[in-house]
Amino acid sequence: MFSWKQVSALLIFAALIIGCAGSGWATRDIPQDPNYLFAWGEAESRQLQLAFNKAELNARAVIARELETKLNNLQKSFAEEIGAGRDMELLTMYTEATKAVTSAQLIGSKVRKQEHKEGKEIYKVRVFIEYPIGEANSALMAQIKRNQNLYIRFRASEGFKELDDEVRKYEEYKKSQGQY
């Protein structure tokens, strides 16, 4: 027979395990690689495909935000005086409004891992996306140049100019390091 102390210890241990389980997903480690941006996207839906679409887009939105976000902070603070004399109470109300606009063209944002769980009539999905920057951009440019249709469309975009600038900077850096 177990003593009440043993039972209590077991219960505490079980509670710790359940508590640590969190959302039930495995680890959310994000690797460190200067050539890539990484992001997890999570979503749930009664439709499996919709859950995957949302999760993918969420992850892409995170990457897009990291790449190009225009933050517009609107902050208002005001104080209101209520009462008078000694009973005067200063009530400070502080409100904060933030707007963030993101617009980015992502070329080569690949899904690397995906997981799903089935809840009660609902699918929970999470997707891990990687986005190449730095050296990977050079390879991507070569690939894009092979696809003429896509390339013509892409060349007209701001995204092309940005990528081209980055690749040029990177190539100049490589030259300066004697890598050619």
Binding site: E56, R60, A61, A97, Q105, G108
Partner: peptide, 27 residues
Amino acid sequence: KSLAGALFSIVRSLEKQAEQYSAVVDE
């Protein structure tokens, strides 16, 4: 569709954070 999204997608979003958070994300 997933392959197309990986090759080239334009992501635009507008996030608002006041008392509540909301965002519209378009791809």
